[in-house]
Amino acid sequence: MRPFKYTRAAETAKAVEAISKNKNARFLAGGTNIIDLMKEDVARPDELVDINRLSFDQIKATSGGISLGALAKNTETANHPLVRQNLPLLSQAILAGASGQIRNMATNGGNLNQRTRCTYFYDTAMPCNKREPGTGCGAMEGINRMHAVFGWSEKCVAVHPSDMCVALAALDANVKVQGADGKTRSIAFADYHRLPGDSPELDNNLKHDDLITEIEIPKNNFAANSYYLKVRDRASYAFALVSVAAALDVSGGKIKDARIALGGVAHKPWRALEAEKFLKGKDATEANFKAAAEMEMKAAKPLEHNKFKVELGKRAVARALTMAMNGGKTA
């Protein structure tokens, strides 16, 4: 870990000011990812601005839906009565990630900005365009079992590691951001994270001095039929091979609206728009779930070691939809 200046910010303006002044400064919230990356010498900020004392930590109902403070902890968010009752999909997704200890530390804003777990990104002895643009992608021709099957580029095949974000993608969340000018703007979740393209070093569309203040989730009718399914190499405390956030708005056996997002398959949470479109207006049957899954995974472009993700993705999508129809109860 490189030497850095530690700045404890007591108010938002000061925090933003500190960041604006220094291109190599970073915000410090829960720290569960950036401290790890700094120990690995992957992240090398020369200043950390501790924003944990700022006040964006409330979870509340708003006219449009539910607002999650960026600094509220993952544990608090997953267990908040508003979230458990109205957004059980989000609770499940958060609880599927990491461990109790980490969820007690990690903040909602920080969760959005987790960096990939790609081993070539983490290992400074390896080439990686995300860590060091221009050095090449170690995973493309290397060991890519954990990597993307959608939306990757020749520059980067990494996947986004978050579970929470998969649910947020399915729920059409908005990310509220305060810029250096003090103005607040809203970014639709689908536009928040990026595909790697030619600039894999950028995970999202935030500017250097943007501060996430809250995440808004619009009202929906998915609470009765949603499920977050995570497929991983061990039963708990492991990143996803494939995960699925599935939510259905069903009336009289007919699907009024469907939301499906996949994790572990792309550089950002992957919305299964084809499958969603197919399901709208159809009967909520397993046959239709399978057909929708099949349709979505057709576009997948697997790499050498992750071909299994195509078939696994199909099964996982169908299974998650079935579980959602069963009221989202765990098996």
Partner: peptide
């Protein structure tokens, strides 16, 4: 069920370097 150390056949580095890549059983397993 879960343990495997993987070498990159090009360079001989292990790509499974941490507890996040090398999965010893957890309590729930």
């Amino acid at each position: 069920l879960s343990e495997e150390s993987v070498l990159d056949p090009r360079w001989g580095n292990f790509v499974t370097r941490s507890f996040a890549d090398y999965h010893i059983p957890s309590n729930l397993d």
